[in-house]
Design a protein around this nucleic acid. Structure first.
Lengths: 232, 232
DNA sequence: ATTGCCGGATTGTTCAACAATCCCTACTCT
DNA sequence: AGAGTAGGGATTGTTGAACAATCCGGCAAT
């Protein structure tokens, strides 16, 4: 996969002529990052006035930015009450895993993009997750886990699917904040096993392992968020 | 699957206490319908001022409504140029069918919702499609075809998936307007065959038939939109 | 034919204002 | 003490006017 000189030029030009980011998008970007990183917790109200003041934009701009996030399901608008960071409940968790249980194994089974390079990428994800786990870096474990699953869906070979799945992952991030630090640690080994099966060319077995993993993870997550907090 | 009396009451109450529709949503609803029905053709510019005047709302309200449609991918915003009805090209069509090729057969294979009632619903869809075809009602054929595929994905048992797929179908509607009236007619029989397989309990065979169907339909659609219009 | 400039159309954003909604608190009544 | 009601404050939903910025098309000059 060589890069032809004309490709390189087009890439540079593409970057040069890319439209500047609008204020709406900038506000949404800042908020999205704070939500996904857990700085804005589920259920937090996002008031138009305070954000308008803090980011020195008008309330109309804030409203438009909110609409972007609502479309991504990481925020919800309650008419006449305000916009809140989404707080996925058990039903939402169940639904999210239903999406994943359909998408991810299907991508592993028939996705047209599962070549050696893709498998190597998945191997890199789990290797990094293992390293983070040894270092008790739970944020890193969660992050690598999401990379892994994003790459799984990317095997499906559809840009739209990848975009859709990014919103699923963003919503899942909200849930993981509720679940607590080491949630993903026990599942790293299952991801490793999935990669091993893929490396041996056993796509069907890998897909079945992934289905089991998702079912286990769903049950564990529901259990984790249904418990009273064990540490204030 | 009986409806308990308390469920029926809750449904009624749910409807009663549902929040009134905001102006933004009303504008978006009107536009969405016009786009999906073909009254607003792909590539049409939606100017804020004219819509603001036509619908007696402010430009800010129009902008917010546009953002909803853009999130659904049936409109696109070109910064500083305006908002246009989406005009899916061959790459978009290919991507849409990639989504469908992953989602729909997976739903048929493992979707938890494929009970007798669901199969009966699919049978009703194809029966209605056949009736529309006999009547040369191509709009009806296309509409029933979409009902069929929506119900297929609903078998996946996820509200999010169904919502996501609704946007896929809306975008497909734009493409079908380009393709011409009888596009779906030749595929009705394949849908019938899929239902027959499901009625016989052959989920795997039905999924494979659906995969073939989608591949054929994709190729036919790309061919149809790549041709010069055969009738002005 | 090409280039540059200007004007018009439209978008992106701001601001101030007002109406509407909702929630919380305080007060009154039983 | 408990329940109900009213009022005020906070916030949202929306409007309209204004201004800056961008883009495109038409026209003039070379």
């Amino acid at each position: 996969m060589s890069t032809r000189p004309s490709d390189a030029v087009a890439t540079l030009l593409g970057q040069r002529i890319k439209a500047p980011t609008s204020a709406v998008e900038r506000v949404a970007d800042v908020l999205r990052e704070q939500i996904v990183d857990g700085a804005l917790r589920p259920g937090t109200q996002l008031t138009e006035e305070s954000l308008s003041t803090a980011m020195r934009v008008s309330r109309n701009t804030v409203r438009e930015a909110y609409s972007l996030l609502i479309g991504e399901r990481i925020a919800v608008r309650v008419p006449n009450r305000g916009v809140f960071v989404a707080a996925p409940d058990v039903a939402a968790i169940t639904d999210l895993y239903a999406v994943r249980a359909l998408l991810e194994p299907a991508a592993l089974r028939w996705g047209p993009g599962l070549d050696e390079r893709a498998v190597a990428g998945l191997r890199a994800d789990v290797t990094e997750a293992q390293r983070c786990r040894e270092a008790h870096d739970w944020v890193g474990v969660a992050s690598e886990n999401q990379h892994f699953h994003r790459h799984v869906v990317a095997v499906g070979g559809s840009e739209r699917l990848s975009t859709i799945f990014a919103t699923v992952l963003a919503e899942m991030r909200l849930v993981f904040h509720e679940a607590g630090g080491p949630f993903h640690a026990p599942f790293v080994d299952q991801n490793v096993h999935i990669v091993e099966l893929l490396e041996q060319g056993h796509r069907e077995a890998a897909a079945e392992e992934l289905t089991r993993y998702l079912s286990d993870a769903c049950a564990a997550l529901i259990s984790a968020v249904s418990k009273p907090p064990s540490h204030g």
